[in-house]
Design a protein around this nucleic acid. Structure first.
Lengths: 239, 239
DNA sequence: TTCATACTTCGATCCTAACCGAAGCATCGA
DNA sequence: TCGATGCTTCGGTTAGGATCGAAGTATGAA
């Protein structure tokens, strides 16, 4: 006994409802101030402050001072992956927060997972990238192929710039709603950013869900096709 | 806010030290009695009993009555995967239980992860199966190829029988010590069992670590070769 | 039946940690 | 310099839950 890493410590960090709410809020990807996080956790600023320092000491959060604001964010995408994993498990055991709620379907369709696209659309995107040979999958590892690099470059992603950073280009992240893998890492982030930049989609206020515009949705689906699409359109006669 | 699954609940379940110790003990794969788990958790039987019912209610444990004993085990390999994931994260943040201890290297080399092989050897086994084309990896999904099925059949694994069960044949499980993927699922379990049956390896008392016999180790390494081995043996002149 | 073992339930204690009010520190703007 | 804002620290309260002794239930063995 007393073997291996101490899971109780990080379990306890996540196990407090106020802290869990703050962490969930930070899964939205943007850095939030202590005041915003206090609201997300449903507690006063003083209480939130102690929680935040505990989370930071535990390695879950990173903070950045900016003027008199203090911005908190998940320490890295390892934390995002961990939380998404726990969410998936909790969902599988029926530990849903309350009733499913009206926002639930939007959340399942497309949402932010730390800084990349998750949900049905996130899973679709990775599936498509693998199916078209842009990304090769070996075990848990994902790799951008030469063909994929050319393809992404053509749609305006600066792959070389991403390679220059320390962050891994491609990472697999388990999706709690789809129970499948979507694309994380520098490339996952860059792709989602590009969707925002082009006005294809935008964040929803106070939620992790992502809203696509009709035009953006059309473009997205065309850019990341699946075989299933062809079969569906064939059934609709011709094109 | 209040979006998605309730991570606080399962965080709290894992966050208590006594419960975490019991769960870690159950990662050894065998079902344990309440009395044994009380010892593992360092608490009295009464306290353990309440903890165990909470864990069961939370969907982490399953129990089986047998005479006057009550055996507890992890509910399924989803729990094992979750715990291994948290362990990996905890290790990455330096949340080790105490000092590394003398058992640590053995644990990193080969250990049980719920019911399959983990550690350096577990990762090696999956790497080799993928490299030799026995298992194909697509995203997070692993699949046994026809060639792999024939190969495994030849070494005495009843793949057909495994297919008949509801449990997925191949699953990827993230290894906390190696930070890479090893093989879980029905096949992972069957392979480890076969190592035990042939006397290649045995469990260590009161620990998750696995001890290979010298002969067993030789056979294991020969059965799951890696390219790196060839390069190493080539350097040692000829054979 | 009787006793022993394995475990659960009850009741009471005790301690941790979550919580907030109030005061203190830091930064910004005027 | 002064006030406003954002956040932290201190102190005291409170509640939840982890803990165990003792009593109760179930199973097996003699």
């Amino acid at each position: 006994m007393k073997e291996g890493p101490d899971i109780a410590q990080i379990g306890a960090l996540i196990g407090d409802p106020a802290r869990a709410n703050m962490l969930t809020a930070l899964m939205g990807g943007r850095a939030l101030t202590a005041t915003e996080l206090a609201a997300a956790g449903g507690i006063t600023l003083q209480t939130a402050s102690t929680h935040l320092s505990k989370l930071e000491a535990g390695g879950l959060l990173a903070q950045r001072k900016q003027g008199r604001h203090r911005y908190f964010a998940l320490a890295d995408d390892g934390v995002g992956k961990l939380l998404e994993g726990i969410m998936g498990f909790a969902a599988s055991r029926g530990h849903l927060r309350h009733r499913p709620g009206p926002k639930e379907p939007a959340l399942r369709k497309a949402r932010i997972c730390y800084d990349h696209l998750a949900g049905d659309y996130g899973v679709r995107m990775l599936d498509s990238l693998i199916a078209t040979g842009a990304i090769s999958a070996l075990g848990e590892g994902l790799d951008l192929t030469e063909r994929g690099e050319a393809h992404l470059h053509a749609i305006g992603i600066d792959v070389g710039g991403l390679r220059a950073t320390r962050r891994p280009l491609c990472r697999a992240c388990l999706d709690w709603s789809e129970r499948r893998t979507h694309l994380a890492g520098g490339l996952g982030k860059a792709l989602l950013s590009s969707f925002f930049d082009r006005g294809w989609a935008r964040r929803t206020e106070n939620s992790r869900s992502i809203q696509f515009t009709p035009e953006g949705e059309r473009r997205f689906l065309a850019l990341f096709p699946l075989e299933a699409d062809n079969r569906a359109s064939e059934r609709e006669s011709a094109e």
